[in-house]
């Protein structure tokens, strides 16, 4: 697990990801915006897999397609070409309703900002995916999540009564409460001060280590990427590198190397 196979990573890892160990995967994933002269290829035949039980970071410069990749994997955006699987489910052919249920039941989401519904309390926000599905929360699990994220005394508060870090912790709790197959986090620390950011990253790390959750996180912060098991580098819509067991320094080095 600790092998750093830099060469392998740079050769684009042509082998298709095996679905068995992958929480989500894509083959030939292509996303094109616009038509004709104004056409922009955001993702260009990307083959990628996100291993179950790992924290994967997606990095790359602006316009590299890292957010688009996350959105396509999460079924929030439709793909132009290729196939996306979440677990065993091929999502590119699902209806809006099926996709919605998939997101509700098998995915968790953490966005950079505006993560919470302002009219709901922290507790209601945490339970929202369950409530939307009319499901009863597993209260033991919920309590564990809430306590781990130190949100016990904040449950009755509305988002505008919470600090930025607390809000983001509520979002993490919400993503965890359904015990999803995969959690997608889009720049989860982008709006936080460094201490709060580290807190949130620490919780994501614990979710993977202690609860065997799968997290895919888009970030531009090498420090954040340092929390990941695997870092995937994207540039111009292609995967251009892969780093296992990264540290912030290794990630920085790699970024410098890629940008040269």
């Amino acid at each position: 697990m600790t092998e750093v196979t830099q060469n392998q990573a740079e050769s684009h890892e042509p082998t298709g990801p095996s679905a068995a160990t992958m929480a989500a995967s894509a083959v030939g994933l292509t996303k094109v915006y616009g038509e004709g002269n104004t056409q922009v290829v955001a993702l260009d035949h990307v083959d990628i897999g996100f291993e179950a039980g790992k924290l994967t970071a997606i990095m790359g410069p602006s316009g590299s397609g890292k957010s688009t990749l996350l959105h396509c994997m999460a079924g929030l955006d439709n793909v132009s070409e290729g196939e996306v699987h979440v677990g065993e489910t091929k999502i590119s052919t699902l209806s809006d309703k099926e996709l919605t249920l998939l997101r509700r039941e098998r995915m968790g989401f953490i966005f950079q900002a505006f993560n919470l519904v302002p009219t709901l309390t922290a507790e209601e926000n945490i339970l929202l995916p369950l409530l939307l599905g009319g499901r009863e929360p597993d209260s033991e699990w919920k309590d564990r999540v809430v306590d781990t994220l130190a949100l016990r005394d904040r449950l009755a508060h509305r988002p505008d009564e919470l600090s930025g870090g607390q809000q983001q912790r509520v979002a993490v709790a919400r993503a965890l409460v359904t015990r999803p197959d995969i959690i997608f986090a889009d720049e989860p620390t982008g709006n936080l001060d460094s201490i709060s950011g580290q807190e949130v990253l620490g919780f994501l790390r614990r979710a993977v280590d202690d609860w065997h959750q799968t997290v895919v996180m888009v970030t531009h912060d090498p420090g954040a990427a340092g929390y990941a098991d695997v870092v995937v580098f994207l540039r111009d819509g292609r995967q251009v590198g892969r780093l296992e067991e990264p540290t912030a320094d290794l990630v920085l080095d790699r970024i410098r190397a890629l940008e040269v």
């Binding site: 249920l101 997101r103 939307l132």
Partner: peptide, 16 residues
């Protein structure tokens, strides 16, 4: 809009 987008993302159906 943002709020609705968020709720749709985390699993609110069109009907809801």
């Amino acid at each position: 809009t943002q709020e609705i987008g968020l709720m749709r993302a985390i699993g609110m159906t069109r009907r809801q």
